[in-house]
Amino acid sequence: MYATRSVHSAQSAYRENAVATASPARLLVMLVERLVLDGERALAAQQSGDWPAAHQHLLHAQDIVVELESSLDVDRMPAGRQLLSLYQYLRGCLVEANVKRDPAKSEEALGLARQLCDTWREAAMAAAIQ
């Protein structure tokens, strides 16, 4: 039992340190990676009929998208308005997937989240190279 708590404590400390020392680009990638994970977990929960778990994962995914929206400076970023529209559409899909218990909407949201994740990873790598 002590070993389990010790391992959990070490994992928590590692995660906190990783977030505290990450660059803004890496933080963004970490955020969209978690968005994908929440989408995967929500879809799996919906497919197994675990609606409370699906609800929690979809809510967390919505919170992430709201954070992405609020941190976006649409006037300074090229194509910022288009990205904001994409975030808003994604959030709408997540809400609909949750309210209607619709796995198809979860799949759509997950596909968008994966594309965003891939795009932000590529952008972060390109920025790191420069």
Rank of each mutant, 00 (worst) to 15 (best):
17 N>R: 02
66 V>N: 05
128 A>Y: 09
24 P>W: 04
128 A>V: 00
50 D>G: 08
79 A>Y: 11
111 G>Y: 01
78 P>Y: 13
118 D>Q: 10
82 Q>D: 15
28 L>T: 15
35 L>Y: 07
90 L>S: 13
69 E>A: 01
92 G>V: 07
38 D>N: 10
61 A>C: 02
45 A>D: 09
36 V>C: 15
1 M>E: 08
44 A>G: 10
3 A>Y: 14
38 D>F: 03
67 E>G: 04
81 R>C: 11
46 Q>T: 00
111 G>A: 15
58 L>H: 12
124 A>Q: 11
124 A>Y: 05
115 Q>I: 08
52 P>K: 04
127 A>V: 03
100 K>V: 05
17 N>V: 09
46 Q>F: 03
112 L>N: 08
12 S>I: 11
93 C>A: 14
91 R>Q: 15
5 R>I: 09
108 E>N: 04
34 R>V: 15
109 A>K: 03
28 L>C: 14
117 C>Q: 08
117 C>M: 01
28 L>K: 07
68 L>D: 06
47 Q>N: 03
16 E>D: 10
129 I>G: 02
99 V>L: 08
2 Y>F: 09
25 A>V: 02
82 Q>L: 06
100 K>T: 15
3 A>C: 11
20 A>N: 00
115 Q>Y: 02
9 S>A: 10
105 K>E: 14
69 E>I: 12
124 A>W: 10
3 A>N: 14
18 A>K: 05
113 A>E: 02
64 I>L: 13
93 C>D: 07
102 D>K: 02
118 D>N: 14
